[in-house]
Amino acid sequence: MEQSLIYIAGGILMGLGAIGSGVGIGILGGKYLEGVARQPELQPMLMTQLFISLALVDAVPIIAVGISLYMIFAA
């Protein structure tokens, strides 16, 4: 009983994290493409900013994924 609850909790944890990062990175990517379309010569600089903010947007969801995997397999 207790183990199956952990699986459900891990699933929910990863699922909600995925929704957040999906929406966030979707908007981020869209804005990045608009920026490059508007000024193609800025592409390299924009790409660096894209990766930095992508990692920041991704931070909490990937921590949630890490914790849920830890809960499911290791704890």
């Binding site: 931070a59 990937i62 921590i63 890490g66």
Partner: peptide
């Protein structure tokens, strides 16, 4: 906390 756990989360999920 987020600085360290971000690196941990990414690598742990990748290794898993």
């Amino acid at each position: 906390l987020s600085h360290g756990l971000r690196l941990f989360g990414n690598l742990y999920a990748g290794e898993m």
